[in-house]
Write a protein that binds this DNA or RNA. Structure first.
Lengths: 144, 144
DNA sequence: CTAAGTGCAAATCTTTTGCAACTTA
DNA sequence: TAAGTTGCAAAAGATTTGCACTTAG
C-alpha cells in the first residue's frame, strides 16, 4: 500500500520526500477512517515530526490528482479524504460518529438501504445522493 | 409559496421583516436553481435594495431550521441552498453547468442511472452518494 | 414598549499562494 | 546542479459573531 503509492508517485516523476512518506503513512494507518487535512497534521505532529499544513494540503491535492485519494465533502465545511486504490466504481458508508468509512460496490440504493446495510449492523440515519452532470439544455449547448 | 413560508415563520414566533420577505422571494424566483448565500446577495442587490450578507446567512440558517430550505454541499467550498417544501424523501439532480436542480423521488440509483435520467436528457458524469448513520460499534455504544 | 432582527466591522476557519531556502534524483 | 518540494507568512474566500441601532408586533 505505502509502497505502491510511492511507486505511483515516482513513476509519474514526483520525488519521494520524507514528508510525502509520512503523509501517505498517516492515510495508510487511518485505514478506512476519513481524515481532514487538520487531522493528518495532528496525527503527524503526534507520531512523527512536524509538517506544515500547506505541505499537507499540497500533497493531498497531488494524491487526488494521481487518483489514490478521494475527497468526501459532508456538510460541515471540512473536506475529508481517504485512500482509494481501486478503480471500481464504489460508494462509501460513513459513520458520522467515528468517521470510519466502508466501501460498497453494489451501487443501487435499494440494495444498500435494505439488506446490505443491515447485514453489517450499520444504522443509516440519512443519505446524500447527488448526481452531477449536464442537464438537457447544457448537454445540447456543449454539443454545439 | 412565499405566503406559506411567511406563515410558517410567523406561526413559530418569528417576525416578518422586509429583509426576510426579500430573501424568501429570491429563493422562490430561483425556482429549482441552487443559490449560494452570495448569489442571493447579488440577486437582491440587483433587483431590490441591499441586504447585508450576514443577514442573509442568518436567515438561511433560520429557514433551514424550520425546514423550508435544504443545503446541498458540493465539493467547492460553497454551500448552496434551495427551497424544499415537500416532506417526501427525495434526491436532487444537479447540473454542474447551470446549477439547476430537479427533484426525483424514485430513490434507487439503478433506476436513476438507467431510465430516469436518460428519459429527461440529463447526462450524468458523476454521482455522489454518502450514507450517514452509525456503524455497528457506535450503534452499540449509543444503546448503552 | 420590548424582544427580535439588522448592518457594520471584525473575527474565524479552512484552504491557497508567493517566495526564499532546501532536497531529491 | 536543476527541478521539484518545503516552511513560513500572508492572502483569500466563505461563514460567523459582537454590538449598537432599528423595527415588527
Amino acid at each position: 500500500m505505502q509502497d505502491s503509492i510511492e511507486h505511483k508517485l515516482k513513476s509519474q516523476g514526483y520525488k519521494i520526500t520524507a514528508q510525502r512518506k509520512t503523509i501517505i503513512k498517516a492515510f495508510v494507518k487511518a485505514k478506512n477512517h476519513l481524515l481532514s487535512a487538520e487531522k493528518v497534521y495532528e496525527w503527524i505532529k503526534e507520531h512523527e515530526r512536524n509538517i506544515d499544513l500547506s505541505t499537507i494540503y499540497r500533497n493531498i491535492e497531488l494524491m487526488m490528482n494521481i487518483g489514490v485519494l478521494k475527497k468526501i465533502s459532508l456538510d460541515n465545511h471540512v473536506d475529508q479524504y481517504k485512500l482509494s486504490v481501486t478503480n471500481e466504481h464504489h460508494h462509501h458508508i460513513v459513520c458520522v460518529s467515528c468517521g470510519k468509512s466502508e466501501i460498497f460496490k453494489e451501487c443501487p440504493v435499494s440494495l444498500i438501504e435494505k439488506s446490505l446495510i443491515n447485514k453489517i449492523g450499520f444504522t443509516p440515519i440519512e443519505h446524500k445522493l447527488e448526481i452531477l452532470g449536464y442537464c438537457q439544455e447544457c448537454t445540447r449547448k456543449s454539443r454545439e
